[in-house]
Write a protein that binds this DNA or RNA. Sequence first.
RNA 1: GGUUUGGUAGUUCAAAUAGGUAAGAAUACGUGCCUGUCACGCACGAGGUUACGGGUUCAAAUCCCGUCCAAACCGCCA
Length: 563
Amino acid sequence: MYRTHNCGELNILDINKKVILSGWVHNIRILKKYIFIDLRDYYGITKLFIKKKYYLFKINNEYLIRIKGIVKKKNKNNIEVHVYKINIINKSKILPFNINSNGIPKVSKKLRLKYRYLDIRRKVIKDNLIKRSNIINKIRQYFLKKKFIELETPLLVNNTIEGARNFIIPSRNFKGKFYSLPQSPQIFKQLLMIGGIDKYFQIAKCFRDEDLRKDRQTEFLQLDIEISFINKIKNIIKLIEKFIKYIFKKFYNQRIIRFKKIKYNKAIKKYNTDKPNLINKIYNINIKIKKIKKKYNILSFILPNFLNIKNFKINKIIKIINIIFKKKYKKILIINNKNKYNNNFKKKKILNIIKKKFFSEYDILIIIIYNNNLKINKNKIFDKINKLLYNEAIYKKNILIPIWIINFPLFKYNIKNKKYYSYHHPFTCPIINNNKLSYKNYSKSYDLVINGIEIASGSIRINNYKLQKKIFNLLKIKKENINKNFKFFLNALKYGVPPHGGIGIGIDRLILLLLNKKDIKNLIPFPKNYYNKDIMLNSPSKINNNYLFKLGIKIIKKNKIYK
RNA sequence: GGUUUGGUAGUUCAAAUAGGUAAGAAUACGUGCCUGUCACGCACGAGGUUACGGGUUCAAAUCCCGUCCAAACCGCCA
């Protein structure tokens, strides 16, 4: 028998009970007469008290031991187990890093990934994984309760022509032909709607062969949702807002400031990006002031002020500007709607223009006028100020500001290829006025961005054969490609397709936000590193020539990274 | 695909003023001491071809070149 109790559950009520415990040696302290061990298992830590006569074998950190003992009172609220027998179940090698240190151990990420199984023993990572499980569980319950049904879609699919690169899987039965791993279950979920399924969801693994970031892995979980009999974006937006509010209330103690919504075009004008971070990112705006002479440049930006940036912080920001400009600017103007900080700027017209661009009435506008011949690195200024805001104000307050970006353009133009591509994907329903459909149309699409992180993306879909074909034509997809990739789908669109739409929510990113973390690798059991390698498995790896021959594959040129 | 930074005991880091004593410390490891520790403490010990290969120099961890590996940014991410 390995255990009668686990290390987390023993308490004052168990005093004088005989117990058997198994666990890892979290920490050991050897004195002349006594030995103290903190014994750790999945559930917690129990303190052990051992008299020298029972300590017969050398024990080190992370040895796996089983003990027999009696529960005794340690002090008012705590117990310890007085041990009379110890077995070593399994010894441990000298550790590559300390597991019992608090917080993040002082060790390179490479080692933590290489010994991921040891990293998982650490409380921080273990707790993340437990929370991950809880969150995913709640998501599933939520949508099942709302009468969605959960269905799987295949992982071995066809290569898609647009978007991110696919992972390719060679076929043994059909030499020279390939499967691909899906970037999302897009077509399948639409086919489910065509099949009369009313509300579908799936917690789906998706794959994209692109380089990684802190908030991006190549294989990731997506909460995939599709609903029939809707044709307006607000149908989905309402549903998701409710869900997001629910999940954040459950796992994130801070309230959500109400959702904002902005059209793509306006977002670009206002924030210069379609993923605005309304919290810690200041944003650049271009202001023209007529009376300024040609030899001066203007640098202007807005501090989005959800956090009551006060005078002393303004002073710090000005200090940064002073350092970078070496005080050689001509003028700094600091303006908010109440003109509280600076009275030099009284021209009402300009103020009104600025007001329109302001996100909220508490925002602060900073304008710096400086001589042309000063070479200024704007990004450096923005970076420094962002850091200041992030460290001092935002990080502590855990505020979330979700914003919907809606009505993306239907197409975008790629200058390199001189080709048009779908902004979202070719199944996105266009907004059509006066029966006109061209490259300039917008679409019934929506992204949800929270604090600069793209959380969800979706659209109302095309449910009409002719319209879908027009889109393919505008994309100039060759007939043979249409036949190869989409013939079945176009065909399906001929059979009384309900209006439908949906959304995909990045679960890993959602968890990142819910747990207020920065690096997605800490929230995934076995993440890949920056170059898409699994450092522990050392994958990807070579395949022997015999097997390659069976697949009909010959390697022509080796890439350095994959040697 | 592009740019940048880095690789020194098992691990985390030092080794200044652009090369100059015998490459140090903490922790982990080993032995011993210590009346109850709780990140125990104390003493002693072991542990290094400074990633690998080449070059410059009287002299290289330090400068240069190549290879390998890692971290970060950009591109990319419908």
